[in-house]
Computed example of a mutant assay.
Amino acid sequence: MSSTLERHVVALGGLRVGEGPAVVISDRVSLRERGGRGADAAERLRDGVTLAEPAGAADLPAIAARARGVVIGSAWTRDIPLIRAVAALGLPVVVERRPSATLEEWLGVAAYVAAEGNDQVILCESADLGLMRAAREASGLPVLADLSGNISTSPDPAPGGGAQGVRLGAELSAAAVAAGADGLVVGGSAEERALAEEAVTLVGALLRPEAPGTLADCRQAIDRVDAALATLLERRAELAGIVQRLKPVGGFAGRDPARERALVARMAQRAPELGEARLAPVMNAVIEAGLHLAEERARR
């Protein structure tokens, strides 16, 4: 592991963890869940699985042949012989934090892997988003947020359905990206992956700095920003419709030029390069679009 805190990037199959937008990983297999060993590992791992956690050293040949990365699970971060064997595979290594481990202990396991000659190290945390941020800042290593155990659960299920669970899953994903996660590990269901990808697209576009180096990467970054922009514009239009119902005088007749100028001035503080002169016509178009939509809905 480098002694400096430059931004580390780890190639995990076709993913680049720690560079640009956060990644979403839905295929993490633990061979410890059913106590698999050796030949059983070859049967349970499909070719190209992103992450695999061994139950023991006998699983490592199958993982080396089939997986793109190997996990040092939170339950065995003190198993030094197995950690040494994992590091020797030459695969990217994801180091989970043991629930009781301090930041220093967690980073110590990562340093041990690097000392064995493998600097393709990624950290992974499942509970403490603040600790995840601290680990990123202290080490420079990429950090994954493991939400696979709780992304679609809810302590207060919605009556008659799982809407509350869906909402909670989206909030967890968004919170992890906002905290600086370089990727999300989620359950294997299509719904869970969709929630995580939406959070990466919307929250990541707003909060994660990007420096694309190719035209294709730049266009993908613009697409992510446009997706977030469309979502925000739709939400603004909904709120504008509510405002029209609450105003004594609604519609175009109820426009407040002074408030609109103040709005543009506040936005210019967040977007000084654009400035008020460029933002004013943009916001005028946004406001008018919302008013037209409100009028159309009123006539339905």
Results as ranks from 00 to 15, higher is better:
residue 237 A to M: 07
residue 255 R to E: 01
residue 208 R to A: 02
residue 192 E to L: 08
residue 257 P to S: 04
residue 241 G to I: 00
residue 166 V to M: 04
residue 226 D to T: 12
residue 264 V to H: 08
residue 264 V to D: 09
residue 174 A to G: 12
residue 232 L to E: 14
residue 251 G to C: 02
residue 267 M to R: 15
residue 159 P to Q: 12
residue 200 V to W: 02
residue 230 A to V: 12
residue 174 A to C: 06
residue 188 G to D: 09
residue 261 R to D: 12
residue 191 E to M: 13
residue 176 A to D: 06
residue 188 G to F: 09
residue 200 V to F: 00
residue 232 L to D: 10
residue 207 L to A: 12
residue 201 T to I: 05
residue 200 V to K: 04
residue 168 L to K: 09
residue 201 T to Q: 10
residue 185 V to W: 00
residue 234 E to C: 07
residue 191 E to I: 09
residue 175 A to L: 08
residue 256 D to F: 00
residue 221 A to H: 11
residue 220 Q to L: 11
residue 231 T to R: 15
residue 220 Q to W: 03
residue 196 A to E: 08
residue 154 S to W: 02
residue 155 P to I: 09
residue 240 A to H: 02
residue 267 M to G: 12
residue 156 D to V: 14
residue 208 R to G: 00
residue 263 L to M: 13
residue 196 A to G: 08
residue 217 D to E: 15
residue 200 V to L: 02
residue 267 M to Y: 15
residue 217 D to R: 15
residue 221 A to N: 10
residue 169 G to W: 02
residue 162 G to Q: 08
residue 249 V to G: 05
residue 206 L to H: 14
residue 190 A to N: 09
residue 228 A to F: 08
residue 198 E to C: 03
residue 210 E to K: 10
residue 157 P to C: 12
residue 229 L to N: 06
residue 191 E to Q: 15
residue 186 V to K: 04
residue 256 D to M: 00
residue 268 A to N: 13
residue 237 A to Y: 06
residue 183 G to V: 01
residue 196 A to P: 06
residue 226 D to P: 04
residue 251 G to P: 02
residue 230 A to N: 13
residue 266 R to L: 12
residue 235 R to T: 15
residue 155 P to F: 08
residue 212 P to I: 10
residue 180 G to M: 10
residue 208 R to Q: 01
residue 172 L to I: 01
residue 214 T to I: 03
residue 239 L to S: 01
residue 202 L to R: 11
residue 201 T to E: 08
residue 171 E to V: 07
residue 211 A to R: 11
residue 175 A to E: 08
residue 192 E to T: 06
residue 240 A to M: 05
residue 177 V to S: 07
residue 159 P to E: 13
residue 210 E to T: 14
residue 243 V to D: 04
residue 235 R to Q: 15
residue 152 S to F: 02
residue 230 A to P: 06
residue 152 S to I: 05
residue 181 A to H: 07
residue 206 L to N: 12
residue 162 G to C: 06
residue 187 G to K: 07
residue 252 F to P: 01
residue 185 V to D: 00
residue 158 A to T: 14
residue 270 R to C: 04
residue 174 A to P: 05
residue 168 L to W: 04
residue 170 A to I: 00
residue 172 L to K: 07
residue 160 G to C: 07
residue 237 A to D: 08
residue 160 G to H: 04
residue 214 T to H: 04
residue 204 G to H: 00
residue 215 L to F: 01
residue 229 L to W: 09
residue 255 R to P: 00
residue 223 D to S: 13
residue 270 R to Q: 06
residue 250 G to Y: 01
residue 268 A to G: 13
